[in-house]
């Protein structure tokens, strides 16, 4: 009787704890859902998309990243967008780069915040409907979201 009650208590607290953390940070599932929203029915492959991010970021407040998609750009065939996600930040969305045929080359770079060690994911959508993805794990020494 006593044991059961204790078990129940521990489980209840555990559940509350889990719910609590999932509210604070994004999860890999959130990112998967967001990628699905971009890709629709298209198959996601790695292909010509390259995401560059440091292996170790000493300061999570400013982590340089860049993305590029290889291939010729023309008026009919170009990269529409590249979206960056971070699966361990309070909100998974980071930035969406919108390219045009005038971009000449599908390359963009910026600096982002990372709250903790996590995966950074880039998802590219091409004008022909192809969806590409690339992932880098970044180790963060000092988190960059403030307290």
């Amino acid at each position: 009787m006593n044991l059961n009650r204790r078990k129940l208590l521990v489980r209840t607290l555990g559940t509350i704890g889990l719910l609590g953390t999932s509210k604070v940070f994004a999860t890999a599932e959130d990112v998967d859902a967001a990628i699905k929203a971009i890709a629709g029915d298209a198959e996601v492959t790695q292909g010509a998309l390259t995401l560059n991010a440091p292996e170790i970021a000493e300061n999570g407040n400013s982590v340089p990243i860049s993305v590029s998609v290889d291939g010729e750009i023309s008026d009919d065939s170009y990269v529409e967008s590249v979206t960056i996600f971070a699966d361990g930040n309070p909100r998974p969305e980071v930035i969406t780069f919108n390219f045009t045929p005038l971009s000449g080359e599908a390359f963009a770079a910026t600096r982002m915040r990372l709250a903790k060690t996590q995966n950074v994911i880039a998802v590219a959508k091409l004008s022909d409907g192809t969806v590409l993805s690339d992932t880098r794990n970044v180790k963060v020494t000092i988190g960059g979201c403030g307290g």
């Binding site: 780069f97 005038l102 971009s103 390359f107």
Partner: peptide, 24 residues
């Protein structure tokens, strides 16, 4: 007057936002 590049930015972009891109 013609769009070259743009982005939708979320709070995870660092202070003093820096962007690098290409144009033909």
């Amino acid at each position: 007057g013609t769009s070259v590049f743009g982005c939708d930015i979320d709070p995870a972009v660092s202070a003093n936002p820096f962007l690098e891109f290409r144009a033909k």
